[in-house]
């Protein structure tokens, strides 16, 4: 059999790859499909047949920037509604050099990020054990379930008036608000992480001689880590949105307070810069968390 021609008498010959290959640039720009998609006959409805369309993204960005440039330089839009490129550039230099209201720009950013991290940290420290208890014990579940289910649908912003009444407007008040925003997210994430354990893993551990505590530490905890991490990521996002809003209401420092105060002085350029910074930081937090997740929990979704 070996080295012999195959059944129909011809030698085995590989079909050559298709001659025409679109350039890497065309593929990167999303103007050409890769060779898998090109040979598909069903493309509409196949999610993998939709490519990045990167060229169109560039078109969108360039169009928006052009629109900005033309409308402001031609005076079609008054600077008070939307500032010109130049004004934003000048303001950014000024903010960078002198800060805003005697507080350096980086400090406004830092204080907002610091509040978020502190709130999420305490939310996790309290929420994870509570979520575990609720997932493991009927008593804990019964005790905390009404509170968790009641608080879950309430947007954290709705708590601001009460928090101000109780705690005033100092740092404690803000961190308490963020703590509450993160707490219920973390409880629910930890609880569902615990409840999601495959019973065969728990049974396997007991059959290997593990004690209850060892099952908790070596099976239930690591098994819940992906869910807990998702909780932290969600909490970070929610808290970032909440901190900006809380600073809009009452704060001396922070990106949110910066744009609110700037508004009162009709400094639209500062407002726009603030909004861009908020967007960039929110995006950076999300990206950082995804990176951390890939690094810390490589087994996610592979059980």
């Amino acid at each position: 059999m070996t080295d012999a021609p195959n059944d129909n008498g011809s030698e085995t010959k590989l079909v050559a790859a298709p001659q025409e290959q679109p350039s890497a640039l065309m593929m990167w720009l999303g103007l050409a499909d890769n060779s898998f998609t090109r040979q598909k006959t069903v493309k509409f409805g196949d999610p993998t047949a939709v490519n990045s369309g990167r060229l169109y993204s560039f078109i969108t960005v360039i169009f928006l920037l052009l629109l900005w440039w033309v409308t402001t330089s031609q005076g079609w839009v008054k600077p008070i509604y939307w500032p010109s490129f130049e004004a934003v550039g000048n303001r950014l230099t000024k903010l960078y050099e002198q800060g805003f209201r005697n507080v350096a720009l980086w400090e406004h950013v830092y204080i907002s990020v610091y509040r978020v991290l502190t709130g999420v940290f305490f939310g996790a420290i309290v929420g994870i054990p509570l979520g575990f208890a609720m997932g493991l014990s009927s008593v804990a579940r019964g005790l905390f379930d009404p509170i968790v289910e009641f608080m879950r649908p309430i947007p954290p912003l709705a708590l601001i008036p009460l928090i101000i009444l109780w705690l005033g407007i100092d740092e404690t008040a803000k961190i308490t608000l963020l703590f509450l925003a993160a707490l219920f997210i973390m409880i629910i994430a930890a609880r569902s992480g615990v409840s999601g354990v495959k019973i065969s893993k728990v049974h396997a551990a007991y059959s290997l001689g593990a004690s209850k505590f060892q099952v908790l530490k070596n099976v239930i905890l690591p098994n819940a880590l992906p869910e807990i991490f998702t909780g932290i990521r969600t909490a970070m996002g929610v808290c970032w949105g909440t901190v900006v809003a809380a600073e809009l209401v009452a704060a001396e420092k922070g990106v949110g307070s910066m744009i609110m105060i700037a508004k009162n002085f009709l400094q639209t350029d500062t407002v726009v810069i603030g909004i861009i910074i908020i967007g960039i930081i929110g995006y950076a937090i999300e990206m950082l968390m995804r990176l951390l997740e890939r690094w810390l929990i490589p087994w996610r979704g592979k059980g």
Partner: peptide, 29 residues
């Protein structure tokens, strides 16, 4: 108890541990 070991159909390994740590789970516990 450890005197009666179990082998399950699938998905009962601890995916957060490597092969050696999975096998040594019982003795380590």
């Amino acid at each position: 108890a450890a005197e009666r070991g179990m082998v399950f159909q699938q998905g009962a390994l601890f995916e957060w541990l490597d092969v050696r740590k999975n096998i040594s789970f019982g003795p380590r516990m």
